[in-house]
Design a protein around this nucleic acid. Structure first.
Lengths: 114, 114
DNA sequence: TACCGTCACTTGCACATTGCAAGTCACTGG
DNA sequence: CCAGTGACTTGCAATGTGCAAGTGACGGTA
């Protein structure tokens, strides 16, 4: 699981943001809340179009953080699916709060989860 | 207020993350939830030690986004205080959810708000 | 057997952002 | 006149991001 080596402070919010506080991580979590199990290509095709190297990097970090798991669901040819762990599902209230703020304060946005 | 020029998608979560989805913005909001009105130096002194140029940049962007306001509370010498707008206070549930996740899943972290 | 396509990434490289340190400028109090 | 405080700005090296192209395992078709 995560090396929690470099935490900025003992604040729970800061600690959480160290793991998911960037433009992409929570969108990956969002996609996996909507669709339980997704492959690399599915996540790439999500409509915000994350760069492929950034996606690979975020998946590694989220896996390290114990937020999602990568499972080989087929051997020949090797195929993988990503899904949230319990820790990952526990981020749902955060995503929900972000979605509520967005739909309330950003005209033209829609709630895709919940 | 904000130029909402470059939004990645119509997803409310993505839109919100475009405004506050980085390592520092929500910590500034956190500090202003805890202490209603803060000056530049107070925010700099917060224990995660944000770099001064990054702080200045984030304050500008959060002000542009209508999340906080800068008020000159004294003229000679000029002194400024930052405080959340209604939009800013509306982020409280998000911060609360992040704090809950952190205290639950990151040993050694504490809830500083709520 | 040769070739094409798919999946799941990796690599290269230009450009943008971050973090640290130092500098600036208005003003005040001694 | 001069040190000190508040609120930033500037310079610059290091790190991170985004786009495009490449790679390697495999399977399907001819």
């Amino acid at each position: 699981m995560a090396s929690r080596a470099t935490r900025r402070s003992d604040c729970a919010i800061a600690g959480t943001l160290d793991l998911v506080g960037d433009r992409w991580s929570l969108l990956i979590v969002r996609d996996l809340l909507v669709t339980e199990s997704l492959r690399y290509g599915d996540l790439l095709a999500s409509h915000e179009s994350i760069p492929t190297n950034t996606l690979a990097d975020r998946l590694r970090k989220l896996e390290d953080a114990g937020i999602l798991t990568k499972e080989r669901y087929q051997d020949r040819p090797p195929r993988f699916a990503y899904r949230l762990t319990e820790r990952g599902y526990a981020l749902a209230p955060t995503l929900d709060a972000l979605a509520t703020w967005g739909t309330t304060h950003l005209p033209g946005t829609r709630r895709l989860i919940g």
